[in-house]
Design a protein around this nucleic acid. Structure first.
Lengths: 326, 326
DNA sequence: TTGTGAAATGTATACGTATTCATTTGCGTA
DNA sequence: TACGCAAATGAATACGTATACATTTCACAA
């Protein structure tokens, strides 16, 4: 590995001067600068970011702990986060973590000195939260939040659940099911609360929580189908779930929306696809939640002042083709 | 920041001993080890990965230069790569790079000392390639390759193009169009070669290259539609393009496959969705190309011996519902 | 010419870790 | 008890960079 010392020797200057050429080009004479730059070019020198961040105790690295990419919501947020961070000169360390893996993901992540952390996969009551808070670096959550979170970006999940259920109710549906994820997660909990605000207490047989994988969606759908009075409509706790329900339904030749109305929440890009046309609830602004979060995080990193950041975006129904009157 | 020196003071030992507890626990006495571990716990010490990789000149970091996530192919590969690497104890630095941004992505990436690099976004004749080769670290490309690549993982793209075109031909189609990306890219070039092997020289009006964005797919489709003799079938150079063509077609109320047959290449997960059912060509083994690549890369990193790795997976047609007899 | 101050450059040090080498400890044996 | 040897530990150093501080250079005025 070629170091700044090698460059210095080659250029006939001291290592400090090389460093100055890189960091304060104005503080070094034109002629010297050119010599050094020539040496850098000749030796194909690239500064060592590890050494730099060691001495400066600062780094241009952000850790992203995202949910898994089989959920299209995380595809969009990850893409936005990484791209924006790169534009701003940050590298992004990405991990895709399943719900119960946060602790170990966190443990390995913090070994690397970083400028900030952005994550989605936190539980409402997550033991990891105290550690996060005691970290000296800024962190922000998007989509989900912790019970005592001070920095988060989300959509109005209660309202989203409410609007989704209301939409189906307004279409005349009375047997409405809910399929969602873990109630330990703020998102699903709040969305379910919203659903209940619209519909009142749902019969137990129409509520299915803890649906994380495709296989579980399959089971959930099978269970609903065999009910003596199957639902005519389903509120899905996330578009990712809705897409999987649609997959199962199509494969079983169930007509959507004729036999079954489906509404999701998140308004992911894919729900707009001509072959999908999923009715869903999403942010009015249609701003990417990940983008909002990374922008806020970088503000926090670069301005040092850290006021409490709590952004909750308003939502509305995006009506497409998977819902119709009962 | 709490350092190993602080831990040493707290435990009443030297810094070297703390280091040994972490790296060679067997070389330190049981009693001492417990003292140190207690101190680590008490001070919530985490070793600084920068300092470590500085002194060891080694690091558990891999750089991934992926194509953009609006292409579902890259969603699947990125997911597989990051997850596998994490399991093996590596952090992954991710960048999503558009075709013409490779140079700058590369420039920022190499400032961080890394164990290896994995990338997809290279052109057949890419100037960056020489720099990559002269790097002392292992790198491997997946999906795409460079003209002089020694380490790559791909599917048999010529065969894929051939089979896709042949499939349509066998169904009786004669007006077959091709929509692909840049011919500077190995993937699209080879796939197009395969198409021509099956169909002979295509009429110029039925060939559309350089289709990278959704907007360009829209334009491509519009152009084909207004032809005096529009195509009855389209070979798409990638599933991502096929999905976008389907999107446009559905929105214009064009029946697929009744009015237009579509075949893609890649066999991405999404093409199996009940609402999509895209006929496509993909690897027989259905192994994730990204996974194969990262496994090979880590082998290269950890075993030092670096034979030439050139994996080309055989392909077959996955017949679904977007193609039918003319 | 000489003195002065600013600009330019060099010297020395710190960051946190792993490791080599030197020193101490402790144990078994004579 | 004393000796020797292995095991355990400590002291010192290197990794590559940025910067505070010391030194040199240089232009300009007296």
């Amino acid at each position: 590995m070629v170091s700044s010392k090698d460059v210095a020797t080659q250029a006939g200057v001291s290592q400090a001067t090389v460093s100055r050429v890189l960091n304060h080009p104005d503080r070094v004479q034109e002629k010297t600068r050119r010599k050094v730059e020539a040496a850098i070019e000749a030796l194909k020198y690239v500064p060592n970011a590890h050494a730099r961040s060691l001495v400066q105790d600062t780094t241009k690295l952000i850790t992203l702990l995202s949910g898994p990419l089989y959920n299209p919501f995380f595809v969009e947020t990850t893409s936005a986060i990484v791209t924006y961070a790169n534009e701003r000169g940050y590298q992004v360390n990405v991990q895709f973590v399943q719900d119960d893996e946060l602790a170990e993901a966190y443990a390995t992540a913090i070994q690397t000195k970083m400028a900030g952390m952005i994550l989605s996969c936190v539980f409402l009551e997550d033991a990891i939260f105290e550690q996060l808070t005691h970290m000296s670096i800024p962190f922000i959550t998007y989509n989900r939040k912790h019970a005592r979170n001070e920095y988060f970006v989300e959509i109005d999940n209660v309202q989203a659940g409410y609007l989704a259920a209301k939409h189906l109710q307004d279409l005349g549906h009375t047997r409405i099911a809910f399929i969602g994820g873990s109630q330990k997660v703020s998102t699903f909990r709040d969305r379910f609360i919203g659903v209940q605000q619209a519909l009142g207490e749902l019969p137990q047989e129409l509520i299915i929580h803890d649906t994380a994988s495709k296989a579980e969606v399959f089971k959930a759908h099978a269970k609903l189908k065999t009910l003596s009075a199957p639902p005519t409509a389903i509120v899905c706790g996330a578009d990712s779930i809705a897409l999987e329900v649609m997959d199962v339904a199509y494969k079983e030749r169930i007509q959507i929306p004729e036999e079954l109305s489906i509404i999701g929440i998140d308004n992911v890009e894919r729900s707009r696809h001509g072959a999908i046309e999923l009715t869903t609830v999403g942010s009015i602004s249609e701003r990417n939640l990940g983008l909002v979060a990374i922008q806020e995080l970088i503000k926090m990193i670069e301005s040092e002042k850290k006021p409490c950041i709590q952004i909750t975006e308003s939502v509305k129904v995006f009506r497409r083709s998977t819902t119709q009157p009962c």
